[in-house]
Amino acid sequence: MIVSTIEQALNQGTRRAADVILWLMAALHVAMVASLLVVLTFAGSARADDQTCRGRNLLRQLETENKAAFDSLVDEAAEVPNGKGLFWQVEKPGTPPSWLFGTMHVTDPRVLAMPNAARDALMKASTVAIESDEILDEKKAMAAMLMKPELSMFTDGSTIVDHLDDTDAKILEEGLRDRGLSLAAVSRMKPWILAGFVALPACELARKASGASFLDKKIAEDAVAAGKTVKGLETLEEQLAAMDELPLSFHIEALLETLALGDRMQDVMSTMTDLYVSGDIGMTMPMLKAVTDSHSGSDGSYAAFEQRIVTDRNHVMANRSMPILKEGNAFIAVGALHLPGEEGLVELLRKQGFTVSLVN
Protein backbone atom coordinates (compact mmCIF):
# COMPACT_ATOMS: atom_id res chain seq x y z
CA MET A 1 0.00 0.00 0.00
CA ILE A 2 2.78 2.44 0.94
CA VAL A 3 4.74 1.59 -2.19
CA SER A 4 1.69 2.01 -4.37
CA THR A 5 0.71 5.34 -2.84
CA ILE A 6 4.14 6.94 -3.10
CA GLU A 7 4.54 5.65 -6.61
CA GLN A 8 1.29 7.40 -7.49
CA ALA A 9 2.58 10.53 -5.79
CA LEU A 10 5.62 10.36 -8.04
CA ASN A 11 3.19 10.56 -10.98
CA GLN A 12 4.39 7.66 -13.13
CA GLY A 13 5.47 4.99 -10.67
CA THR A 14 9.26 5.01 -10.65
CA ARG A 15 9.64 1.33 -9.92
CA ARG A 16 13.29 1.29 -8.99
CA ALA A 17 13.85 4.86 -7.95
CA ALA A 18 15.00 4.19 -4.40
CA ASP A 19 18.40 2.80 -5.37
CA VAL A 20 19.07 6.02 -7.24
CA ILE A 21 17.64 8.35 -4.62
CA LEU A 22 19.35 6.60 -1.73
CA TRP A 23 22.59 6.72 -3.70
CA LEU A 24 22.11 10.42 -4.24
CA MET A 25 21.34 11.33 -0.64
CA ALA A 26 23.88 9.10 1.09
CA ALA A 27 26.66 10.04 -1.31
CA LEU A 28 25.62 13.61 -2.03
CA HIS A 29 28.78 15.09 -0.56
CA VAL A 30 30.88 12.86 -2.80
CA ALA A 31 28.56 13.69 -5.68
CA MET A 32 29.02 17.41 -5.06
CA VAL A 33 32.78 16.97 -5.12
CA ALA A 34 32.59 14.84 -8.23
CA SER A 35 30.37 17.38 -9.94
CA LEU A 36 33.16 19.93 -9.64
CA LEU A 37 34.82 18.29 -12.59
CA VAL A 38 31.71 18.76 -14.69
CA VAL A 39 30.40 22.05 -13.30
CA LEU A 40 33.75 23.81 -13.57
CA THR A 41 34.16 22.58 -17.12
CA PHE A 42 30.57 22.96 -18.31
CA ALA A 43 29.27 25.72 -16.03
CA GLY A 44 27.52 27.35 -18.97
CA SER A 45 25.08 24.44 -19.13
CA ALA A 46 23.52 25.57 -15.85
CA ARG A 47 21.65 28.82 -16.39
CA ALA A 48 22.54 31.29 -13.66
CA ASP A 49 19.00 32.72 -13.71
CA ASP A 50 17.36 29.32 -13.14
CA GLN A 51 17.86 29.26 -9.37
CA THR A 52 14.22 28.81 -8.37
CA CYS A 53 13.69 25.30 -7.04
CA ARG A 54 10.42 23.60 -7.87
CA GLY A 55 8.95 20.46 -6.45
CA ARG A 56 6.24 19.25 -4.13
CA ASN A 57 6.46 17.60 -0.74
CA LEU A 58 5.55 13.96 -1.32
CA LEU A 59 4.84 13.31 2.34
CA ARG A 60 2.27 16.09 2.55
CA GLN A 61 0.54 14.65 -0.46
CA LEU A 62 0.71 11.17 1.03
CA GLU A 63 -0.78 12.40 4.31
CA THR A 64 -3.68 13.90 2.41
CA GLU A 65 -4.30 10.94 0.11
CA ASN A 66 -3.55 8.03 2.44
CA LYS A 67 -3.33 8.93 6.13
CA ALA A 68 -2.82 5.32 7.18
CA ALA A 69 0.20 4.92 4.93
CA PHE A 70 1.62 8.21 6.17
CA ASP A 71 1.13 7.18 9.81
CA SER A 72 2.93 3.92 9.08
CA LEU A 73 5.96 5.84 7.84
CA VAL A 74 5.85 8.06 10.93
CA ASP A 75 5.83 4.98 13.16
CA GLU A 76 8.75 3.47 11.26
CA ALA A 77 10.73 6.70 11.54
CA ALA A 78 10.10 6.82 15.29
CA GLU A 79 11.97 3.52 15.63
CA VAL A 80 15.17 4.93 14.08
CA PRO A 81 17.70 5.56 16.88
CA ASN A 82 18.59 9.25 17.15
CA GLY A 83 16.40 10.02 14.17
CA LYS A 84 15.10 13.35 15.43
CA GLY A 85 17.25 16.45 15.40
CA LEU A 86 20.33 17.91 13.72
CA PHE A 87 22.35 19.38 16.54
CA TRP A 88 24.00 17.43 19.39
CA GLN A 89 26.24 18.30 22.33
CA VAL A 90 29.18 15.94 22.89
CA GLU A 91 30.61 15.80 26.42
CA LYS A 92 33.12 13.90 28.53
CA PRO A 93 34.21 14.81 32.09
CA GLY A 94 37.30 17.00 32.19
CA THR A 95 36.94 18.18 28.59
CA PRO A 96 35.15 21.28 27.28
CA PRO A 97 31.98 20.28 25.43
CA SER A 98 31.96 19.91 21.65
CA TRP A 99 29.18 19.85 19.08
CA LEU A 100 27.97 17.53 16.33
CA PHE A 101 25.86 18.98 13.53
CA GLY A 102 24.15 17.21 10.64
CA THR A 103 24.34 18.96 7.29
CA MET A 104 22.66 18.67 3.92
CA HIS A 105 25.12 19.06 1.07
CA VAL A 106 23.14 21.64 -0.92
CA THR A 107 23.08 25.41 -1.48
CA ASP A 108 19.40 25.90 -0.59
CA PRO A 109 19.09 29.15 1.43
CA ARG A 110 16.85 27.45 4.00
CA VAL A 111 19.59 24.89 4.63
CA LEU A 112 22.36 27.49 4.72
CA ALA A 113 20.50 29.45 7.41
CA MET A 114 21.31 26.82 10.10
CA PRO A 115 19.59 26.71 13.52
CA ASN A 116 20.60 29.63 15.75
CA ALA A 117 22.08 27.38 18.44
CA ALA A 118 24.27 25.60 15.89
CA ARG A 119 25.47 28.87 14.39
CA ASP A 120 26.32 30.21 17.85
CA ALA A 121 28.28 27.07 18.67
CA LEU A 122 30.13 27.30 15.37
CA MET A 123 31.20 30.85 16.14
CA LYS A 124 32.42 29.87 19.64
CA ALA A 125 34.28 26.71 18.62
CA SER A 126 38.06 26.74 18.31
CA THR A 127 38.21 23.83 15.83
CA VAL A 128 35.81 22.99 13.02
CA ALA A 129 35.82 19.57 11.35
CA ILE A 130 33.98 18.66 8.17
CA GLU A 131 33.99 15.58 5.98
CA SER A 132 36.77 16.91 3.75
CA ASP A 133 38.57 20.21 4.22
CA GLU A 134 39.86 19.99 0.64
CA ILE A 135 36.53 21.39 -0.58
CA LEU A 136 37.64 24.85 0.54
CA ASP A 137 39.51 25.28 -2.73
CA GLU A 138 37.53 23.91 -5.66
CA LYS A 139 40.40 24.15 -8.11
CA LYS A 140 42.70 22.26 -5.75
CA ALA A 141 39.93 19.74 -5.19
CA MET A 142 39.63 19.18 -8.92
CA ALA A 143 43.40 18.91 -9.18
CA ALA A 144 43.36 16.28 -6.45
CA MET A 145 40.79 14.32 -8.44
CA LEU A 146 42.94 14.50 -11.54
CA MET A 147 45.96 13.24 -9.62
CA LYS A 148 44.12 9.90 -9.43
CA PRO A 149 42.39 9.85 -12.82
CA GLU A 150 41.53 6.15 -12.55
CA LEU A 151 39.07 6.99 -9.76
CA SER A 152 36.93 9.24 -11.94
CA MET A 153 37.82 8.42 -15.54
CA PHE A 154 38.10 5.35 -17.73
CA THR A 155 41.86 4.98 -18.18
CA ASP A 156 41.83 1.64 -20.01
CA GLY A 157 41.02 3.18 -23.39
CA SER A 158 37.30 2.50 -23.12
CA THR A 159 34.45 5.00 -22.85
CA ILE A 160 31.14 4.74 -21.06
CA VAL A 161 29.48 3.82 -24.35
CA ASP A 162 31.56 0.64 -24.44
CA HIS A 163 29.78 -0.45 -21.28
CA LEU A 164 26.25 0.19 -22.59
CA ASP A 165 23.99 -1.44 -25.14
CA ASP A 166 22.69 0.68 -28.00
CA THR A 167 19.41 1.53 -26.26
CA ASP A 168 21.05 2.70 -23.05
CA ALA A 169 23.68 4.63 -24.98
CA LYS A 170 20.91 6.53 -26.74
CA ILE A 171 19.14 7.22 -23.43
CA LEU A 172 22.37 8.55 -21.98
CA GLU A 173 23.13 10.71 -25.01
CA GLU A 174 19.66 12.26 -25.05
CA GLY A 175 19.61 12.76 -21.29
CA LEU A 176 22.94 14.52 -21.29
CA ARG A 177 21.91 16.67 -24.25
CA ASP A 178 18.83 17.79 -22.32
CA ARG A 179 21.18 18.99 -19.58
CA GLY A 180 23.47 20.83 -21.98
CA LEU A 181 26.21 18.18 -22.11
CA SER A 182 27.67 16.38 -25.08
CA LEU A 183 28.22 12.65 -24.64
CA ALA A 184 31.40 12.89 -26.67
CA ALA A 185 32.80 15.50 -24.29
CA VAL A 186 32.25 13.42 -21.14
CA SER A 187 32.42 9.87 -22.49
CA ARG A 188 35.55 8.99 -20.52
CA MET A 189 34.05 10.04 -17.20
CA LYS A 190 32.90 7.19 -15.00
CA PRO A 191 29.14 6.89 -14.58
CA TRP A 192 28.99 7.99 -10.95
CA ILE A 193 30.75 11.25 -11.88
CA LEU A 194 28.07 11.96 -14.45
CA ALA A 195 25.30 10.84 -12.08
CA GLY A 196 26.61 13.25 -9.46
CA PHE A 197 25.93 16.01 -11.98
CA VAL A 198 22.65 14.96 -13.60
CA ALA A 199 21.02 13.98 -10.29
CA LEU A 200 21.15 17.52 -8.93
CA PRO A 201 18.17 19.76 -9.81
CA ALA A 202 18.72 22.64 -12.21
CA CYS A 203 18.29 25.16 -9.39
CA GLU A 204 21.11 23.56 -7.42
CA LEU A 205 23.44 23.49 -10.41
CA ALA A 206 22.56 27.09 -11.27
CA ARG A 207 23.37 28.31 -7.77
CA LYS A 208 26.61 26.36 -7.78
CA ALA A 209 27.57 27.67 -11.21
CA SER A 210 27.03 31.21 -9.92
CA GLY A 211 29.43 30.57 -7.03
CA ALA A 212 27.16 29.54 -4.14
CA SER A 213 28.67 27.24 -1.52
CA PHE A 214 26.86 24.18 -0.21
CA LEU A 215 26.39 24.08 3.57
CA ASP A 216 29.53 22.13 4.52
CA LYS A 217 31.73 24.41 2.46
CA LYS A 218 30.00 27.51 3.84
CA ILE A 219 30.66 26.28 7.39
CA ALA A 220 34.34 25.78 6.58
CA GLU A 221 34.58 29.17 4.84
CA ASP A 222 33.02 30.95 7.84
CA ALA A 223 35.43 29.13 10.15
CA VAL A 224 38.47 30.18 8.11
CA ALA A 225 37.23 33.77 7.99
CA ALA A 226 36.97 33.72 11.80
CA GLY A 227 40.53 32.41 12.17
CA LYS A 228 39.53 28.94 13.34
CA THR A 229 41.34 25.68 12.67
CA VAL A 230 39.56 23.61 10.00
CA LYS A 231 40.16 19.87 9.72
CA GLY A 232 38.87 17.13 7.47
CA LEU A 233 37.76 13.70 8.65
CA GLU A 234 38.40 12.14 5.23
CA THR A 235 40.37 12.91 2.11
CA LEU A 236 38.84 13.40 -1.31
CA GLU A 237 40.87 10.46 -2.54
CA GLU A 238 39.28 8.24 0.10
CA GLN A 239 35.81 9.41 -0.87
CA LEU A 240 36.50 8.89 -4.55
CA ALA A 241 38.00 5.45 -3.90
CA ALA A 242 34.95 4.37 -1.89
CA MET A 243 32.68 5.12 -4.82
CA ASP A 244 35.05 3.56 -7.33
CA GLU A 245 35.22 0.30 -5.36
CA LEU A 246 31.56 -0.43 -6.03
CA PRO A 247 30.55 -2.42 -9.13
CA LEU A 248 30.55 -0.47 -12.38
CA SER A 249 27.17 -2.02 -13.22
CA PHE A 250 25.65 -0.45 -10.09
CA HIS A 251 26.82 3.02 -11.06
CA ILE A 252 25.67 2.62 -14.67
CA GLU A 253 22.22 1.59 -13.48
CA ALA A 254 22.11 4.54 -11.09
CA LEU A 255 23.06 6.94 -13.88
CA LEU A 256 20.40 5.64 -16.27
CA GLU A 257 17.70 5.64 -13.61
CA THR A 258 18.65 9.15 -12.53
CA LEU A 259 18.17 10.30 -16.11
CA ALA A 260 14.81 8.52 -16.20
CA LEU A 261 13.62 10.35 -13.08
CA GLY A 262 14.07 13.70 -14.79
CA ASP A 263 12.11 16.53 -13.17
CA ARG A 264 10.59 14.14 -10.61
CA MET A 265 13.86 14.37 -8.71
CA GLN A 266 12.76 17.89 -7.77
CA ASP A 267 9.89 16.42 -5.74
CA VAL A 268 12.28 14.14 -3.90
CA MET A 269 14.73 16.95 -3.20
CA SER A 270 11.92 19.21 -2.02
CA THR A 271 10.70 16.52 0.37
CA MET A 272 14.24 15.84 1.57
CA THR A 273 14.86 19.52 2.23
CA ASP A 274 11.63 19.91 4.20
CA LEU A 275 12.55 16.90 6.33
CA TYR A 276 16.03 18.27 6.91
CA VAL A 277 14.87 21.73 7.92
CA SER A 278 12.39 20.20 10.39
CA GLY A 279 15.07 17.86 11.76
CA ASP A 280 13.08 14.73 10.87
CA ILE A 281 16.15 12.82 9.69
CA GLY A 282 14.73 9.47 10.82
CA MET A 283 11.90 9.88 8.31
CA THR A 284 14.29 10.13 5.38
CA MET A 285 15.10 6.49 4.76
CA PRO A 286 11.56 5.15 5.38
CA MET A 287 10.20 7.67 2.89
CA LEU A 288 12.81 6.85 0.27
CA LYS A 289 12.63 3.10 0.73
CA ALA A 290 8.88 3.27 0.29
CA VAL A 291 9.38 3.91 -3.40
CA THR A 292 11.51 0.79 -3.85
CA ASP A 293 10.12 -1.98 -5.98
CA SER A 294 10.23 -4.98 -3.65
CA HIS A 295 11.24 -7.13 -6.59
CA SER A 296 14.25 -4.97 -7.46
CA GLY A 297 17.20 -7.09 -8.42
CA SER A 298 19.77 -4.62 -7.12
CA ASP A 299 19.26 -5.20 -3.38
CA GLY A 300 22.67 -6.84 -3.08
CA SER A 301 24.38 -3.96 -4.81
CA TYR A 302 22.65 -1.43 -2.61
CA ALA A 303 23.61 -3.37 0.54
CA ALA A 304 27.24 -3.20 -0.58
CA PHE A 305 26.81 0.49 -1.31
CA GLU A 306 25.25 1.22 2.08
CA GLN A 307 28.04 -0.64 3.85
CA ARG A 308 30.88 1.02 1.94
CA ILE A 309 29.55 4.56 1.53
CA VAL A 310 27.59 5.01 4.75
CA THR A 311 28.52 2.55 7.51
CA ASP A 312 32.24 2.21 6.81
CA ARG A 313 32.60 5.96 6.55
CA ASN A 314 30.69 6.45 9.81
CA HIS A 315 33.34 4.41 11.60
CA VAL A 316 36.18 6.28 9.89
CA MET A 317 34.73 9.65 10.80
CA ALA A 318 34.02 8.59 14.39
CA ASN A 319 37.58 7.34 14.89
CA ARG A 320 39.14 10.44 13.37
CA SER A 321 36.92 12.65 15.52
CA MET A 322 38.45 11.25 18.70
CA PRO A 323 41.58 13.44 18.94
CA ILE A 324 39.53 16.50 17.99
CA LEU A 325 36.88 15.78 20.64
CA LYS A 326 39.53 15.09 23.29
CA GLU A 327 40.71 18.67 22.87
CA GLY A 328 37.14 19.93 23.30
CA ASN A 329 35.35 23.02 22.01
CA ALA A 330 35.07 21.49 18.53
CA PHE A 331 32.27 21.80 15.98
CA ILE A 332 31.95 18.68 13.81
CA ALA A 333 29.69 18.93 10.76
CA VAL A 334 28.90 15.89 8.60
CA GLY A 335 26.00 14.80 6.43
CA ALA A 336 22.87 14.38 8.54
CA LEU A 337 22.29 10.83 7.32
CA HIS A 338 25.54 9.84 9.06
CA LEU A 339 24.05 10.67 12.48
CA PRO A 340 21.10 8.29 13.13
CA GLY A 341 21.00 4.51 13.39
CA GLU A 342 22.74 1.84 15.45
CA GLU A 343 25.99 2.56 13.58
CA GLY A 344 25.46 6.27 13.14
CA LEU A 345 27.88 8.80 14.56
CA VAL A 346 25.75 9.59 17.61
CA GLU A 347 25.84 5.96 18.78
CA LEU A 348 29.47 5.44 17.76
CA LEU A 349 30.57 8.42 19.84
CA ARG A 350 28.58 7.16 22.80
CA LYS A 351 30.40 3.83 22.53
CA GLN A 352 33.65 5.81 22.82
CA GLY A 353 32.53 7.10 26.22
CA PHE A 354 31.02 10.43 25.26
CA THR A 355 27.66 11.70 26.41
CA VAL A 356 25.82 12.85 23.27
CA SER A 357 22.66 14.86 23.91
CA LEU A 358 20.19 16.44 21.51
CA VAL A 359 20.07 20.23 21.63
CA ASN A 360 16.53 21.47 21.02
Results as ranks from 00 to 15, higher is better:
residue 196 G to I: 11
residue 162 D to T: 04
residue 191 P to Q: 05
residue 209 A to V: 01
residue 175 G to A: 04
residue 168 D to Q: 06
residue 174 E to T: 15
residue 176 L to A: 09
residue 165 D to W: 07
residue 202 A to K: 03
residue 202 A to E: 03
residue 187 S to P: 07
residue 186 V to N: 07
residue 178 D to I: 14
residue 206 A to N: 04
residue 189 M to H: 04
residue 192 W to Q: 11
residue 184 A to H: 12
residue 204 E to G: 01
residue 171 I to S: 05
residue 206 A to G: 00
residue 161 V to A: 08
residue 161 V to E: 12
residue 182 S to F: 05
residue 157 G to E: 03
residue 208 K to I: 14
residue 188 R to T: 14
residue 187 S to W: 03
residue 183 L to S: 09
residue 182 S to E: 11
residue 195 A to P: 05
residue 173 E to F: 04
residue 174 E to S: 14
residue 178 D to F: 10
residue 194 L to D: 09
residue 199 A to M: 10
residue 205 L to Y: 08
residue 207 R to C: 00
residue 201 P to S: 00
residue 194 L to H: 07
residue 194 L to M: 07
residue 182 S to G: 14
residue 180 G to Q: 11
residue 172 L to M: 15
residue 196 G to M: 09
residue 176 L to R: 01
residue 204 E to H: 03
residue 163 H to W: 15
residue 159 T to L: 08
residue 210 S to E: 04
residue 161 V to Y: 09
residue 205 L to R: 15
residue 160 I to K: 06
residue 191 P to N: 07
residue 190 K to I: 04
residue 184 A to Y: 12
residue 195 A to Q: 09
residue 192 W to H: 05
residue 202 A to Q: 10
residue 179 R to G: 00
residue 169 A to F: 09
residue 192 W to I: 05
residue 172 L to R: 10
residue 171 I to Y: 06
residue 209 A to F: 03
residue 183 L to G: 01
residue 160 I to D: 03
residue 162 D to E: 00
residue 192 W to F: 12
residue 206 A to D: 01
residue 187 S to V: 01
residue 206 A to I: 00
residue 196 G to S: 08
residue 199 A to Q: 12
residue 160 I to T: 05
residue 204 E to F: 02
residue 184 A to D: 10
residue 166 D to N: 12
residue 175 G to F: 05
residue 201 P to R: 00
residue 189 M to A: 08
residue 178 D to Y: 13
residue 168 D to W: 01
residue 189 M to W: 05
residue 168 D to G: 08
residue 204 E to L: 01
residue 203 C to Y: 00
residue 193 I to D: 07
residue 163 H to A: 02
residue 166 D to A: 15
residue 177 R to A: 14
residue 175 G to P: 06
residue 173 E to G: 07
residue 169 A to C: 11
residue 198 V to Y: 11
residue 185 A to I: 06
residue 201 P to H: 00
residue 167 T to S: 14
residue 177 R to L: 14
residue 166 D to I: 10
residue 165 D to G: 05
residue 180 G to P: 06
residue 196 G to E: 09
residue 157 G to Y: 12
residue 210 S to V: 04
residue 170 K to G: 15
residue 176 L to W: 10
residue 203 C to P: 01
residue 164 L to Y: 06
residue 179 R to Y: 07
residue 182 S to D: 14
residue 209 A to K: 03
residue 188 R to S: 15
residue 160 I to E: 03
residue 210 S to I: 09
residue 174 E to Y: 10
residue 188 R to H: 14
residue 204 E to C: 01
residue 206 A to V: 01
residue 186 V to T: 02
residue 185 A to M: 05
residue 169 A to E: 10
residue 187 S to G: 00
residue 180 G to W: 05
residue 188 R to P: 11
residue 174 E to F: 08
residue 193 I to M: 08
residue 158 S to H: 13
residue 204 E to P: 02
residue 191 P to F: 02
residue 179 R to V: 12
residue 160 I to N: 07
residue 195 A to F: 10
residue 194 L to R: 05
residue 181 L to A: 10
residue 209 A to Q: 00
residue 170 K to S: 14
residue 172 L to C: 10
residue 176 L to C: 04
residue 186 V to P: 07
residue 206 A to C: 03
residue 204 E to W: 03
residue 205 L to Q: 12
residue 176 L to Q: 09
residue 177 R to Q: 15
residue 208 K to S: 13
residue 207 R to I: 03
residue 194 L to E: 09
residue 203 C to D: 02
residue 209 A to M: 00
residue 174 E to V: 15
residue 175 G to H: 04
residue 170 K to I: 13
residue 175 G to V: 08
residue 183 L to T: 03
residue 162 D to C: 02
